[in-house]
Every structure is written in structure tokens, then in C-alpha cells.
Design a protein around this nucleic acid. Sequence first.
RNA 1: GCGCCCGUAGCUCAGUGGAUAGAGCGCCUGCCUCCGGAGCAGGAAGUCGCAAGUUCGAAUCUUGCCGGGCGCGCCA
Length: 574
Amino acid sequence: MPADPATDAALSIDARLRDAIAARASAAAGLEVDPATVALTLPKQAGHGDQATNIAMVLAKRAGKNPRELATQITEGLAEDLGDRLAKIEVAGPGFINLTFGDPLLREALAAVAGAGRAWGGGTAALTERVNVEFVSANPTGPMHIGHARNAAYGDATARLMAFHGHEVEREYYVNDFGSQVKNLGVSISARARGEEVPEGGYQGEYVTELAESIPGAAEQSVEELSALGVEAMLERARRTLDRFGVHFDRFFSERSLHEPAADGGPSALDRALEIVKGNGELIERDGAWWLQTEKRGDDKDRVVIRATGEPTYYASDLAYMRDKHDRGYDRQLLVLGADHHGYIGRMRAAFEAFGGDPEHLELLIMQLVNLVANGEPVKMSKRAGQFVTLDDLVDFVGVDAARWYLLQRSHDTAVELDVELARKESSENPVYYVQYAHARCCSVLDRVSSSARALADGLATDPAVLLGLAAPIEDAERALILRLGEFPTEVAVAADRRAPHRIATYALELSQTFTAFYRDCKIAGAEGDGVEAWRAALTLATRDTLATALELLGVSAPERMERRDEEPAAEAA
RNA sequence: GCGCCCGUAGCUCAGUGGAUAGAGCGCCUGCCUCCGGAGCAGGAAGUCGCAAGUUCGAAUCUUGCCGGGCGCGCCA
């Protein structure tokens, strides 16, 4: 996929700097320097410039030179090469080179962002991969709980992120519509339909009674029929819940279908997969059962695929399912699994390799737990007793935007605590509203900008060069905002590569803060000075689009105006 | 016992080799004749679990220990 040209232009600012630095560093150190290896970072410390590189320190040892001395030589060369694009360049600390951009370079940077619009930050993947992301895959035997909520939010946001970065992504839900749990659901519905207690080990939840009531003549139906109808109903319910949560799958893949004969009447996908691993010498018979020899591939022990009874295990389905996805030609399979599945990594990898898959192309992403807290007390969740905090409950309670934000703002591999009371009570002050507010503020300010300035700013999408002619000096808050916007493509790339959508949430918050500081320090609508209003409108426009993109990657809405919320009624006198 | 994840401010958590470790919430002090105060400015608050090691440089990499979560079925 070709990257957007405007994004290219901005990256080329970065690339041009790298090239220049690499050339001078190479000459000074007497070593080959690949521009791609030049680290350019935005220093967090004010006074350390707009970009910094540690190249002199990295090369010092190999070059046999003092880092500061090396840095000084590189600096002198760069100052000569880059002219007024640099306002300042200096050696600092142990050998950092700090660069401060000149106004011409800052204008080029903003022109690139503004020109790209909603495409800014995307499409920079070096090569496009076909990626299958399997997530949620909750058993259709019960409502989706808070753990599924985190899995859903994460899988979906990761898919959005990778697609935006430049990959072809498909979302897939594996439906466990086969086996003893499904039968168990049928048994439980049947019991409720006949007004009896659910047998030991059955599903106790209220929803089972609801299912029984919703199925006409349930008391007379067979367990098999009730199982099928129950699964169908639960799946439909899951679809509606996910839809409401902003998560849409490309495919619901039935486990049962793996067990059915092929379209041509040939063996099932499961049988074919087993034949393949058997042919590869991966199966062994022992104690009357068939085992996949996973231990030799790093698993704790071998795993049964066909029980002594002749029944395939759940693991056999997993094997066939991975094989099916593999045959569909994806470059990469991502599986988003719950915390309680981390013990499966070994056997899943082993299975993938057993049929000839390249382990590099399988990624198992483990979600850590969400601990729900209400009023400072942990919320107990018992599937047995049928007590859930469901995904629907969460959305009802705090709304889709806050729910997704809270579930996505932290790394997937750290356990998080979510205080639902707090999330709702503080909803007017929590970070997601702050970011949305910044977006709404961009929109509302742009409405107040003069039509001529607005026209100039809007024209940038087609002609970014307009900005370059503006002469007014760039102020600190404007500089900070441009640099922040300029980070977005790198942030997207890192977040996508690390499957870390929470970085986008962090970035969105930082961008919002930077914009708010700009808004405070620089008057936008009606600003004095030649072209200043248009220039600031362009900055606002670029911020609005980048915030909207960031929020969209998280699946959080970007409203053009926030509803004026009435003050909470003062603690009622009761 | 073995395996995976985590230990950073009062709380919830960012930060996967760089400079004086950050944010949100909470707390304290200020700011509404000014583009939306759902806001802004400032402040208090940290032995980055502990100890060694690697390096010019470690919250970050290695090892050991301590503490917490989760998992170790011919269940799904």
C-alpha cells in the first residue's frame, strides 16, 4: 500500500534530518552509518531543543573518540548543511546533539500534517501483511462479562490500529458451538423449562430461565434441540452486545463446522488436520489415546487430541481451526486470549508448528485481568451463582466511550482495576471527556474563524504550500503543538508494531493537553497579524483531524460539541 | 513445585538503554469584563520491591531473592 504523499513529505523531513546526521556522523567517526539507525527523539526536557540524537555517544566507542568531541564535529557540519532550517544546534550533557527547528522547517512540518488530514499518521507500514485477529470468542453459553469486554476492546482497537498502519486485517470470532458445554446449556434450559432446578454443574444464571421462556414449547423439546436453539440465541445476543460496543466481526467461525464432512463429502477439517500432523510424525498412540507430541516443542507435556473413547478433545478443534486459518493464507494470526489461557501458549505454538506453520506468524496475546471495584470494594463475579457484571451492564453504566477508554488506556499485559462507580461519578472529569472536549473545542473555534482564514486553512488539504509563505514568527505554544502532531506517525507505528493501542490513548491525552496550552496562549479566531489567523486555523484543523483519528482508533466517538451538562443537583436535602 | 504476567507518587497507571522519572484522580493555593471554566497556572507527594551484574549511561537488559495475580485435566 503506497503511503499517503503528504505523510511521505513529513516523514521526509525526518528522513532528511537522518540523512544529514548520518552523513556528518559517518565522516566524523570514520564509520559507516545507516540513516535508519539514527535515533531522533523529542526531548522531554524544555531547553533541550525540538529533537535530539545520541549518535555521537553510540559511535564514540567504535570510533575510539570522545563523545563530546565527536558531537561537536557533527554539529558544526550540520549547522553548515541545514542553514536556516535550524534555529539552534548544540552539544549537551554527555554528548547529545540538540536540534532546534527554524521556522521554515516547522512550517514544512505543519504543511505535511495539514495536507494529510485524516490520513495523517497512517499507511507507513514497511510492508502490508494480511492479518487475522481472533478475539472475544466467548462461549455462547453465557453472557459476556467484563473480561470479554477488555478482550473485545483490545482486539478491535488493535485491528483498527494495524489496519490504519497499512495492513489488511480481518476480525474473527471462534464460536464454541460443539461439545459438552453446549450440551450442558441444553440440559440447563430443559430443566428450567420444566420448572426444575438446574443440575449440578449446569448454568445457573437468570439468562437460562429467560432462554427457556423465549423458546416456545421448550419443556417438550430434546436437549439437542435446546442446545442448538440456546447457542443460536446466545450468539445473537453476543452480536448485539458487541455491535453496541462498536465491535464488528468479519466472520463468526463455527467450531461445529470443523467436525462436519467437507462439502464434497470428504473427511472433516478436523480429520484432515489430524491426518496431516500424523503424516508429519507428530502423533503417538498411548494408553488408547492419540497424543500430539508437543513436549519436544517446548510444551510442558504431550497433549491428547483423541481420547481413548474416540472423542476428539477441544484441543483437536484448536489445531484444526489454526490449520484452517493457516490455509486461508494469512501472513499472520493474532489470538487474543484471556489471562486464564496463558498456560495454552506452549501447546498452541506446538500445534501450529506440528502442521508446518512458521511460529513467527502466530502471535498469542494474553489479556490480564480486569478487577472491578465499586465503592472501594471488589465486585465478586461468580459464574456458578450466575452473578455477572456483564459487558452490557458496563456500557449501561458508564457508556461506550468511557468503557472503551478505560479498558484501552492501559497495556494489555498489566492487570487493571476499574472502579465503575468512580468511572460514572467522575465521568465529567475523566480523561476521555477531556480529549473529546479538546476535539469539540477545535470544532467550535473553527466555527468562529473568519471565512477568509478558514478558506485558506481548508485549502491546505490540496495545497500545503500555502503555509510556507507565511512570515509571522512561530510562538512556543505553536512550536510545541507542531512537534506533538509530528510524533503521530511514529506513535502509530510503534503502537501497531507492539500491538499496544493504549499508547494511542496516552498520545491523545498529551495532544489534547498541548492543544489546550496553545489555545490558552494563542488567540485563534480573530488573531492579529498577516496570515496569523489562517496559520492558527490550520494548526487547529490539523489537531482536530489528528484527535479524531486517534479517538477512532480506540473506537471512541469524537463529538463536534459536548453537551452542556447541567450541574449535579446539589446534595438533595432529604 | 513448575510456567506466564505484574511490583514506578496517597490511589489507578504511562514510560522496553539516555539528560532533572511522568499523567489522571485525590490533596493544597490562586485564576471566570478574554475564541466553551467539562478549563488554566502553581504546590506538596517517589529508596522506580530488594541485591548483585552488563554499560559511558539502567525504571528499562541479565541473574538471584521478596511480594501479588493467574494457570498447570483424556474439561471447555
